[in-house]
Amino acid sequence: MSFVSKFKLSFIITMSWLMIGCTTINVDHVRLRDDIELNAGDAMVVLGRHQTAEIQTEASLVACIGGRLTRGTDKVRIIPESEFVDAFYPWFEARTAPLRPAKLKKVLDQPMVAAKIAAMKIRYFVWVEGSTERTNSAGSMTCSIGPGGGGCFGFGTWEDTSDYETTIWDLKTFSEVGRVSTEAVGTSYMPAFVIPIPLLAQVEGDACQGMGNQLVRFFSDVSVQE
């Protein structure tokens, strides 16, 4: 291996170790009622808000939170969002989904909907609202191709911010019983010395873990009635 090749490799490895994408996350949890309960076999569905172009919660985040709950608690069954929405079409599509527990009660006034909810033993809804956005970027990079080959040179950074809130509805009382909010800010790096190396902050994944862990704690404290 030539000196230049060794230098390039050493530079890449050093940059990779020194500049790993990092995330700062804050999670807030509010329990609005102390008398949370579950019956054996109860189920819960985690749904994302998608009612407008501005409010499009990522399906990947909703699935991640549902998966975290599935792994973290055996007290309640988790029904996937897609399965639930398909089963209750069109009542929980983007433009028709209820925004408040009182509106949900009106939906359940439909005998067919109420019968399905009862058959699936759904006790809690967890609504997830928010998004991850690019909030800042800096740096530059140039790429070229010549007779001897090509490559990219430069350095760039960008910042992503995740801002999400989950609300927990109890279908027995048609009330909101809890709320979890999270804000995650992560900085990613893209150094390039011939080959660009993205060092990404896992902002959405960190937000999922923060909210998912808090929701697991929320339901872990609940006693199950046989």
Rank of each mutant, 00 (worst) to 15 (best):
E58L: 10
S60N: 07
Q209D: 08
R179D: 03
I13A: 15
K116I: 09
L171I: 03
D109N: 14
V194I: 15
R95G: 10
H29Q: 08
I168H: 06
I13T: 14
D28V: 07
S82A: 14
G66P: 03
D86A: 15
I145F: 12
D35K: 07
E83V: 15
L32Q: 06
G205M: 02
D109Y: 06
G148S: 13
A192P: 04
R217H: 11
N26D: 07
V85T: 10
T70S: 12
H50S: 11
A138S: 11
D170E: 05
S188N: 04
D34E: 09
M120T: 10
W169S: 07
K75Q: 12
G178F: 00
R100C: 02
F193G: 04
N26G: 00
K105Y: 12
R77F: 09
M120H: 09
I117S: 05
G149T: 09
D160W: 05
D34S: 06
S5P: 00
N136C: 00
G149S: 11
D74K: 14
L38I: 08
T70F: 11
L47E: 03
F88H: 10
G186F: 07
A138H: 01
L104W: 11
P196R: 01
G150P: 07
G156A: 15
K6V: 05
A59Y: 13
V113I: 15
V222C: 05
T14I: 15
S82R: 14
E183Q: 11
I117P: 02
T132I: 10
G21P: 04
S131L: 12
A40R: 10
K116A: 14
K116N: 12
T161V: 13
I36R: 13
Q214V: 07
T132M: 02
E159W: 06
L32E: 07
K116E: 14
D86Y: 11
A53C: 04
A59F: 13
M1Q: 07
K75D: 11
D163I: 05
K6W: 06
N39R: 13
E37H: 13
G151E: 06
A102R: 09
S82W: 09
F219E: 04
D170F: 03
I65L: 09
L18T: 10
A115V: 05
Y164Q: 06
I145W: 12
V216R: 03
L99S: 07
M141D: 04
A102M: 08
V4E: 13
V222P: 03
R31Y: 02
G139K: 01
